[in-house]
């Protein structure tokens, strides 16, 4: 069996998820990846969860600069632009 038509195991597939999402797989591997995900509920779930993880990271709470720092910067901006 040639490498192109060989199947990916679930364990191999989970390590290729980011390469797949980044469009970095060669055509043969990409086809095998998509075939597997189309047939395997577990890997389809894993792929979706990696995408959800990326989306959720876009809305995590993060601290901003202190108000003092922001007003210092505004002073600097004002001074420089005058």
């Amino acid at each position: 069996m040639s490498e192109e038509v060989g199947q990916l195991s679930c364990q191999e597939l989970v390590e290729l998820v980011t390469d797949y999402l980044e469009d970095a797989l060669d055509d043969g591997t990409r086809a095998r990846f998509e075939l597997h995900v189309g047939l395997c509920h577990g890997c389809a779930a894993y792929l979706g969860q990696m995408e959800e993880t990326a989306t959720r990271l876009g809305s995590i709470p993060v601290d901003s600069l202190s108000t003092e720092a922001t007003s210092t910067l505004l002073d600097a901006f004002r001074g420089f632009r005058r």
Binding site: S9, C10, Q11, E12, C40, H41, G42, C43, A45, Y46, G48, Q49, E52
Partner: peptide, 10 residues
């Protein structure tokens, strides 16, 4: 190399 049990849906 197959899942022993699938990851739970979220």
């Amino acid at each position: 190399g197959g899942w022993k049990s699938f990851p739970s849906d979220w």
